[in-house]
């Protein structure tokens, strides 16, 4: 192989890559926050006594989980405006990724809820708490701590999925990498560096989340 490595163009565009990385992180954080809310509702829906609620939640989760995320992104960006729901690129992507995260987190939360001992709810009832207060003060906080490791994994997946936003020209890391690639033809260098940035970022995120898990863990 005869290839002269030249990283100059990468270093010159370092600010763009950093900006792209920042936007990717932002998209992932906002989406997982919204996704947690949706996921909680869907998880309680799946476990509800009411058949209609259960049906809606299950339909949502299976529909989203059985659709490729790229299709969802394109659908929300190109098809929804035809139905009168026009969002700008970033909002559209956040919307998609939140819906997507919600479906996966619903499963995580559902299994977390099912795994809780029944006595926790009964102890709440016995001191006169309503079902709602039991959920907000006991069930959700305990379940949340138990599922934190899966939540971390989901967050890292979501962060990597933000690269797909390039498909609708959201200016995140992959978008800029492609731009640099097209303008400079430094193919190997560009994608090598982009990959490295993702790897390092994921590694750092995982380490930070691990620390958060330890901090929130219930002492024993």
């Amino acid at each position: 192989m005869n290839y002269d490595f030249n990283f100059d163009v990468i270093w010159r565009n370092w600010d763009l890559l950093a900006e792209g990385l920042g936007l990717g992180l932002f998209l992932a954080i906002v989406s997982i926050a919204i996704g947690c809310g949706i996921g909680l509702l869907a998880a309680f829906g799946m476990l509800s006594r009411h058949r209609t609620l259960r049906w809606i939640a299950v339909a949502y989760v299976s529909a989203i989980r059985n659709t490729p995320i790229l299709v969802l992104i394109l659908f929300c960006y190109f098809a929804l405006p035809q139905l009168g729901i026009a969002l700008d690129k970033i909002s559209s992507f956040v919307f998609t990724l939140s819906i997507y995260a919600g479906a996966y987190l619903a499963e995580v939360f559902r299994s977390g809820l099912v795994a809780l001992p029944k006595g926790l709810r009964e102890a709440g009832l016995a001191i006169g708490l309503t079902e709602f207060k039991i959920k907000t003060n006991i069930i959700i906080p305990v379940m949340f701590r138990n599922v934190l490791p899966s939540l971390s994994n989901n967050f890292i997946s979501l962060f990597k999925d933000t690269s797909l936003a390039a498909a609708i020209a959201v200016p995140e890391l992959t978008f800029y990498a492609r731009k640099i690639n097209v303008e400079s033809f430094r193919v190997i260098e560009t994608w090598m560096v982009a990959s490295m940035i993702y790897v390092v970022a994921c590694y750092v995120i995982a380490a930070l989340l691990r620390r958060l898990e330890l901090r929130l863990a219930v002492p024993r």
Binding site: P117, G119, L120, E122, A123, G124, L125, A126, I127, G128, L129, T130, E131, I138, P141, V142, R145, V218
Partner: peptide, 24 residues
């Protein structure tokens, strides 16, 4: 109603076989 029953439950105190403390 759920609310009435919750209020009545608070008139009793219960200790369980498995303690059921809130772990967090």
């Amino acid at each position: 109603s759920e609310r009435e029953i919750a209020r009545q439950r608070a008139m009793t105190g219960m200790a369980f076989q498995q303690f059921n403390l809130f772990p967090h």
